[in-house]
Amino acid sequence: MEHAGKNFPEPTIETEAYWDGCRNRELLIQQCNQCGKSQFYPRMMCTNCMSRNVHWVKATGKGKVKTYTIIHRAISKAYAKEAPYVVAIIELYEGPSLMSNIVGCHPRDVNVGQEVEVTFQDWSEEITIPMFTPIERD
């Protein structure tokens, strides 16, 4: 029950494919069949051309840190044991941005512009959360 009390997402009819993807260790985003634009979070239409003809694609899972913060005062008890933890906005190579945690490094080592890739954290049998970690360069 390592993650008990955290803010578990509740998948909806619109988002369950995304959360199924996470469970299978795939980061899914949507792409428009009409204009080709990629988007996140999932929607029933393309935010660019309003076409309803959007489909799921597997993202590279790679992107860069647009901004981040190191949270010292956790939002609730369940998160206190993670503090200090990093919340960041990541711009995926495909274009869309999303919020996530940066894990697998010291918070001090996170930078704006840093390249990161997705990693998955299992919170329960149903819920797996995508997080990001710095891409190691040789």
Binding site: A74, S76, E82, V87, N101
Partner: peptide, 10 residues
């Protein structure tokens, strides 16, 4: 609730 809150942002 699904795409930000799980990451514990205050």
């Amino acid at each position: 609730p699904q795409f930000e809150s799980p990451y514990g942002p205050s």
